[in-house]
Computed example of a mutant assay.
Amino acid sequence: MKKKIAVLLGGTSSERNISIKSGNSIVQSLLKSGFDAYSIDTRDYSIINLKKDKFDKAYIALHGKGGEDGSIQGVLEYLKIPYTGSGIMASAISIDKFRTKLLWKSYNLPIVPDVYIKKKNAIPLNSFTIKKILKLKFPILIKPNNQGSSIGITLVSSMKELSKAIDIAFSYNDDILIEKFIKGKEYTVTILNQKTLPTIHISTKNNFYDYNAKYKSFSTQYSCPSGLNIIQEKKLKKIAILAWNALSCKGCGRIDVILDKTNKFWLLEVNTIPGMTNRSLVPMAAKEAGISFDELVLLILNISN
């Protein structure tokens, strides 16, 4: 009898549209591989019904809040339905940029200097907070603490641009991160079942790899293999796997890093449910490793909680 798979997609986060694209690609692949797969939009379907509707497994293709933050993982564990990706705790921490960085720091991993601000303490900014921000030195990045896909991020070059950028970030989250902007080369490392896949170098004409560079611009270039020498590649993969394991992540995900002008790698963030669209980086890294899209989908499906 065919296994019945619920591919959870859509949802209500700001990354809804990308999630639908990812999920539909996964459904088509699973159908091709002989599974009884269904697109389940969690915005319109109560996942409590998964048990009643006799689903054997959930394939999570939800990005952002409600999919990557441990909440849906908790419901699936309560229902005793196996699911793909990281567990409750790893998901909840990984979506929280500030707490992710605290954990990485405790492992002596290289994190970008930052200032963390909660909305209730932020308006207006007190002199102590302003001093801490100025210590980072411009340019700086203002980002919501719990958003993905570079949504709500602003690059700020002077004090007069600060308050508008803070307002934008607070419109997505009640807490934000202000980070030192490190100019350098961006790389991403895919991790699949505790093994690293070939790294990808991302080059964009934008100031950084923002939402437009990710999903709209045709000038963004991806190099896989990344062009790093063997020593750098080894070093980067070691940092990535340590960062992944520090958060107890599992399944498949990505670690994003930047290489500065002094050849030092800095961790940027982790993605526990990476995109699976035609522009997505995980399928690109898998292809370089000789893994087809359909094989990748099956490998992720088989590493379930």
Results as ranks from 00 to 15, higher is better:
K261V: 07
E77P: 03
K118E: 08
G70A: 10
I72W: 06
T262E: 15
L177T: 08
K237S: 04
S150E: 03
D44A: 12
K4N: 04
G184H: 10
G87V: 07
L31C: 08
L79A: 09
I117C: 03
Y59T: 06
A213E: 15
G253P: 06
K97W: 03
P144Q: 12
N145P: 15
L50H: 09
K132W: 00
K54R: 12
K183M: 05
G11L: 01
Q194R: 10
V297K: 02
Q147P: 02
K52H: 05
L103P: 02
E186S: 09
K237F: 03
N145H: 10
E233H: 00
Y78V: 13
I191G: 07
R16H: 14
L298N: 14
V115M: 01
S25C: 13
K51Y: 07
N278V: 05
K250M: 12
K264V: 09
I200M: 05
L228R: 10
A240F: 08
S71W: 05
I182C: 03
A165W: 04
N229F: 00
I178R: 00
I26S: 03
I153P: 05
G74N: 04
K32A: 00
S292A: 00
D210A: 06
I133N: 03
N49E: 14
S248N: 15
T154S: 15
L162N: 12
I230Y: 15
L236N: 13
I255W: 03
I239E: 12
G64C: 13
N146W: 03
I168T: 15
D44Y: 13
E161Y: 01
I202Y: 01
K51H: 08
S304P: 04
F265C: 01
S14Q: 10
Y78D: 03
P139L: 01
Y78S: 14
N146H: 04
L268R: 07
L281W: 03
K195C: 06
P274G: 03
P283N: 08
D175L: 02
M159K: 14
I239H: 14
K65F: 09
L299V: 11
S280D: 04
T129V: 06
L192F: 08
L298Y: 05
L125G: 00
S22N: 00
I72A: 04
K238F: 07
T190H: 08
A246K: 14
G66L: 14
I117K: 01
I111M: 06
S46M: 13
G23L: 09
S292W: 00
I239V: 15
A92F: 08
K101V: 05
Q232S: 14
K287F: 12
V27Q: 00
E15I: 11
D44I: 07
K21G: 01
G275W: 08
D44S: 12
I26V: 15
L301S: 11
K183F: 03
N245C: 05
K264T: 09
K287A: 15
K32M: 07
L76K: 10
D174C: 11
G251M: 11
I300C: 12
I142Y: 04
K105D: 14
I88Y: 12
V156N: 08
M159S: 12
K250P: 06
L192A: 07
K21E: 12
A92W: 09
A289P: 13
K52T: 02
F170G: 12
K80D: 13
P82R: 15
K118V: 01
G87S: 11
I230V: 14
P274Y: 04
R99K: 13
S223K: 13
E269R: 02
R99M: 11
L192H: 14
R254F: 04
